[in-house]
Amino acid sequence: MLSPPVQPMLAEARAELPPERALPGGLAFEQKPDGYRAVLFAGPGRAHLQSRNGADLSSAFPEITAAGRDLRQPLVLDGELVVATEGRLDFGRLQARARRRGAGARQAARTAPAHLIVFDVLDTADGPLLNEPYQARRALLEELFTEEVLAAPFVLCPATTDRATAEDWLDPAWGAAGIEGVVVKGLAQKYQPGRRGWIKVRARASAEAVVASVTGRVAAPVRSCWAATTRQAACGSSRGRHRCRRRPDGRSAACCPQAERSTPGSTAASPPVGAPARRSTTGRSCRRRGRVRRGHRGGPGPLPAPHPLPARTRGPEPPAAAAPRGLI
C-alpha cells in the first residue's frame, strides 16, 4: 500500500478547453469544485488525510477520517474537500474548519460537515494503480460507489466525455454554486505524482462599469474624470481606461492626482462637496497636441455621458445538488 505523503498529480491552467487530441487517449472532463485538494489513506482501523502540500488534516476533519476507518477495504483516494452551505459550496467556512482542532473541530463537524468529492483512486488491496490508465481507474472508482463501498461523506465527482456538457459546466451559473471550472484528463493517462499533466480551465464571469467623479463643487466642478473598466472574476485581472474632461475653452484640464495614482478602474477618494479647488502640486501633466501643459484651475464643464451597458444575460441555473454519477 502507498503511504503518506504522496504528491498529487496537478493541472496546468489554460484559457479554454483543449482540442480532442491534446492528451493521450482522448479527453475526459471533470467538474472542479471550490475546495481543498486532499489525499485520503483509509482502511479498516486506519485513516490519514493529507493536504496537497503534505500537511496532516486528519484532526481538522474528524468526520472524514472516521468514515475512512470504517471502510471495508484499504483505499487511497484523491479528491477535493468541500463544505456546503445553503445549496452551494462555501470556501470561507471550509477555511475556518481547517484551522480548528480538538473539541472545536468536532463541534464544527456537527454544524458544518465536510465532504470529500473523490475523482481518483490510487491504491487498493490489490496494489497501487498509478500506472493504470485514467479510464480504468475511473471505472473502478464508479464501481466502489455502485457497490456502496464508498458512501457519504464521500461523493463521486461528476465526469463526462461530452464536450458540450463540459462547456456548460464553464457557465458562470455553475460558479454561483461553487464549481470553479473543469479539469481535463487523458483517458489513457497514468497518474504521475507531482506532475502538471492535466489541464484546468476556469469559468469566467465579467462585469463592466463606468465610474465618474469631480473635484471642487458639484455645481461648478474644477475637473471631471471618468473611468471605464472590465473585470474578470476568475483571474482577478481588470483592464480599463481613464480620461479627464477638457475645459469649455478648449484647453486641457489637469488629470486629478488621485486618478493618476490609482490603477485603471479603481475608485479614488475625491474632495468633499464644497471644498475649495486647489492647484495641482504633483508635477504631473496632460498632453495636448504634442505639448505639455501644467495643472491649472479650470472652469465648469459637463460630465461625459456614460456609455450604455449591455443587458446582463443569465446562464442556465445549476441543479440544487449534483448527484454523484459516472458518465464515462
Results as ranks from 00 to 15, higher is better:
I199V: 14
P276H: 04
Q50G: 11
F91G: 00
A84G: 00
G26N: 05
R293P: 02
V184E: 03
L17Q: 04
R196P: 07
G178H: 09
G295E: 00
E30R: 08
S59D: 12
R231W: 07
E148D: 10
R251M: 15
T124I: 02
Y134M: 13
A152N: 07
P318A: 07
R37Q: 01
A253D: 12
T124F: 04
D126N: 03
N131E: 15
G35E: 05
R21Q: 02
G216N: 03
D168W: 02
A96K: 12
D123S: 13
L94V: 04
Q258W: 12
R279F: 00
G181S: 05
D56A: 15
A233Q: 04
T263Y: 12
G102F: 07
P304S: 10
G104F: 01
E63D: 15
F119E: 10
P221A: 06
P5W: 05
G35Y: 10
C225P: 00
G216F: 11
L81E: 07
Q189I: 09
G186N: 05
R72W: 11
R325F: 13
D171I: 09
L122T: 03
P306Q: 04
Y134N: 15
P153H: 08
R46A: 13
S206I: 06
L2V: 08
G295A: 05
C157K: 04
P276R: 02
P62N: 05
E30Q: 05
L2G: 01
R325T: 10
S224I: 09
A152T: 13
R101W: 04
A22Y: 01
A320V: 09
A159F: 09
E16N: 05
L150E: 15
G295V: 02
P302T: 03
A220I: 08
P316V: 14
F61I: 10
C235K: 06
